[in-house]
Design a binder for these strands. Structure first.
Length: 274
DNA sequence: AGCCAGGAAAGCG
DNA sequence: CGCTTTCATGGC
């Protein structure tokens, strides 16, 4: 669980200790939650109330479907197997679509540590406060709240040029101009990606991150500098862009996005670089 | 001090 | 079209 929360999918979980148990505190949708690994692959979770919408198990993808997913990965591939074995417990988190979309808009050309800072600032200034386990934690602000805040106030959160994109996207949704819920009814992967690319500041990579981490579309394969690096190193792939995208989706199969996350983590934490 | 970060839009030819 | 430049900010 700890590796999953630190794997660059989600940016708001912070270390927290409850009665000498070390874990993380954050929100699952609107519900404050404490999570801790307590040995033997057991997970401790504390919530002030039951979240009827999304359970801890759903959020962390702790389902038996894992076995089926892993069986679709390329088996005769030592490089991928070592990426998989590097962190076998890694899961894809199922985040709220808006929260995921907005967070990745703020992620462009930023390091993970700084994306965390931005996420925390936005939550503290514009989100709803929950007092939980002797601590204040904040849910992710709604599109309405960010639209109302205005571009200047967002820029003041160290967003830089991303403030404009976040503001325009929040406004498009808050005004009813674009209904984010429509995305769930789009079957086709390309159409879904194009739908997300309507938003200012959203290109192919951020659209794929949103589909993978925020829409439960496990075939989406986001390509960033780390993935380009790892595919170049592990598979001698010198192609880029759309060609690399097509190869990866085809090679890693129906759950390519899941495979992507193992490769990303292997590249970033495993110090694969030169 | 220089380089780069989970990129995308705008500006070229 | 495909390629290049520009856009802020902070950590190392």
């Amino acid at each position: 669980m700890a590796a999953t929360l630190n794997s660059g999918q989600v940016f708001h979980w912070v270390p927290h200790t409850v009665e000498d148990v070390e874990g993380f505190i954050g929100t699952i949708h609107e519900t404050p939650t404490f999570l801790a690994d307590i040995g033997n692959e057991n997970l401790l979770s504390i919530q002030p109330r039951l979240d009827s919408e999304v359970t801890v198990e759903t959020y962390l993808s702790l389902s038996p479907k894992e076995v089926e997913i892993r069986s679709t990965f390329p088996s005769d591939d030592p490089f991928f197997q070592s990426a998989l074995n590097y962190c076998p417990g890694l899961r894809i988190i199922r985040q709220p679509t808006w929260e995921c979309l907005a967070t990745f808009i703020t992620s462009s050309m930023k390091q993970v540590a700084h994306i965390r800072d931005i996420s925390q600032t936005l939550r503290q200034r514009f989100g709803i406060r929950h007092d939980f386990l002797n601590r204040s934690i904040y849910s992710y602000p709604t599109p309405e709240k960010l639209a109302e805040a205005g571009e200047a106030a967002l820029r003041d959160c160290a967003l830089g040029y991303r403030a404009k994109s976040l503001y325009l996207t929040a406004t498009a949704i808050a005004s009813g101009d674009i209904n984010l819920a429509d995305l769930a009814h789009i079957e086709d992967h390309k159409e879904a990606r194009d739908f997300l690319c309507q938003f200012h500041g959203v290109g192919e990579k951020i659209a794929n991150c949103t589909l993978l981490f925020g829409c439960n579309r496990l075939g989406a394969f986001p390509i960033d500098v780390w993935i380009e690096r790892v595919l170049r190193k592990g598979y001698r792939k010198r192609i880029k862009g759309a060609k690399l995208q097509k190869w990866a989706e085809s090679y890693f199969g129906p759950y390519a996005g899941y495979a992507q996350q193992f490769l990303f983590h292997y590249a970033r934490v495993g110090r694969l670089g030169e």
